[in-house]
């Protein structure tokens, strides 16, 4: 069984700064990390590997420096990592990104399952997974919070969708995106961390993917949407009447507000 895990390197959201005047994201203001939801996807793949044996291949599209994300994936249980990297991939929107990732997966060869996080914390779209599935012509299930069973033929999962919780069975190959509830990703062991540093990460660009990738379908050229403007809105700030002492007075005043705003109906 071969499981592919899609990953993205994202800025550390706790630290990244935004320039309101210029309307830009200062990516240099923060370090990078693996998109948190992708760690859940990787953990789900590694758990299947542990119970029934599988090869786990992590795939990341990004600049050459994104190699570190794939090394981290190896330290967390992936067998190998493949970086999709080429200047011509730059500026890809959802469609072009999904198309390029699908080409990378095709170039790997046979596979049974593709895992991805439900969304990235920078792009926030949650659309790439399903588009990859469409480009690969395989089915997908979103919002998976539990894997009931996985084998070579099919996967049975619990998914939170349509204002309900459903059990779905999907014939493989297929793609699954996972929520944070599916598991708690383990930290890598020290020896695995050390070992992963030596891992060789192949980088595939236009040349390596030529058989599966049309230059006009990737990068800025292959994108169907364009970002015209970025706005950095002011942080919400409310006037904030703060009561610090005399709780009884505070509560009485707040009661009057509730009555005034008709939250409490008084006869």
């Amino acid at each position: 069984m071969r499981i592919i895990v899609l990953m993205k390197q994202v800025p550390d959201m706790e630290k990244v700064k935004f320039d309101r005047e210029k309307g830009v994201i200062d990516r240099k203001s923060a370090g990078t990390e693996i998109n948190p939801f992708d760690l859940n996807a990787l953990e789900a793949a590694v758990q299947i590997k542990e119970t029934r044996g599988a090869e786990v291949v992590a795939v990341c599209m990004g600049p050459p420096s994104a190699e570190v994300a794939l090394k981290e994936a190896i330290s967390r249980g992936a067998d190998r990592g493949i970086l999709l990297s080429d200047r011509k991939f730059g500026g890809s929107d959802v469609k072009a990104t999904a198309y390029t990732l699908a080409a990378g997966i095709k170039a790997i060869g046979e596979y049974d399952l593709v895992f991805a996080g439900i969304q990235t914390v920078d792009g926030d779209t949650g659309q790439v997974g399903a588009e990859v599935a469409q480009f690969l012509d395989i089915p997908h299930i979103y919002f998976v919070e539990k894997i009931v069973e996985a084998n070579e033929e099919s996967v049975t999962v619990v998914t939170d969708i349509w204002d309900g919780v459903y059990v779905k069975k999907m014939k493989l190959p297929g793609l699954v995106t996972v929520t944070k509830d599916i598991n708690s990703p383990r930290l890598p062991a020290f020896k695995d961390k050390m070992k992963s540093r030596k891992a060789v990460i192949p980088a595939w660009g236009m040349d390596e993917l030529a058989e599966f990738l049309d230059e006009t379908e990737t990068g800025r050229k292959g994108s169907a949407t364009m970002v015209k403007k970025i706005e950095v809105p002011k942080a919400v700030h409310r006037k904030g009447l703060l009561w610090r002492d005399n709780m009884d007075t505070a509560l009485n005043e707040f009661m009057d507000i509730l009555v005034d705003k008709k939250v409490i109906e008084v006869e």
């Binding site: 959802v94 949650g126 588009e131 469409q134």
Partner: peptide
């Protein structure tokens, strides 16, 4: 919605058009 976000990308990829999320 969870359902809309699950179907729309697939529709967009089939039609090869863009899709803006949320």
């Amino acid at each position: 919605t969870s359902f809309g976000r699950s179907i729309a990308p697939r529709v967009a990829a089939t039609l090869k058009c863009g899709l803006t999320a949320d």
